[in-house]
């Protein structure tokens, strides 16, 4: 499966993404450390996509069972992560809304 772009292409994407990742969060106020960690945590829930793809081409009960477990885990990570992050951030913005009034 790895050969549509080729190993070198994938490696290039990886290295460039490292720089982007360093760059986007270089300055963060400590107030936002917790939501940022939680949000980043939700983003790696995208492993769900991998779990779906692999389960969709699997045959054999062992692979399918493991795949379905991976899908459940990935969904918990992704959906739960975004919801809990939003809950935290809602509190900040609710308060800001009051100040304006």
């Amino acid at each position: 499966m790895a050969n549509q772009i080729g190993g070198m292409g994938l490696l290039t994407i990886f290295v460039l993404a490292v720089f982007v990742g360093f760059e986007v969060v270089s300055k963060v106020s400590s107030t936002l450390h917790t939501p940022l960690m939680s949000g980043a945590n939700a983003i790696h829930g995208v492993v769900l996509v991998g779990a779906i793809l692999i389960t969709g081409v699997s045959s054999g009960p062992a692979q399918i069972t493991l795949g379905l477990i991976a899908i459940v885990l990935g969904t918990v990570n992704m959906v739960g992560g975004f919801v809990v992050t939003d809950r935290m951030l809602r509190m900040f913005s609710a308060r800001r809304g009051e100040e304006r009034r």
Partner: peptide, 15 residues
Amino acid sequence: GNTLLIVAGTLVGAS
């Protein structure tokens, strides 16, 4: 061989 997983995972890893 999934580019999205690479980009998203690496972003989180680096940040």
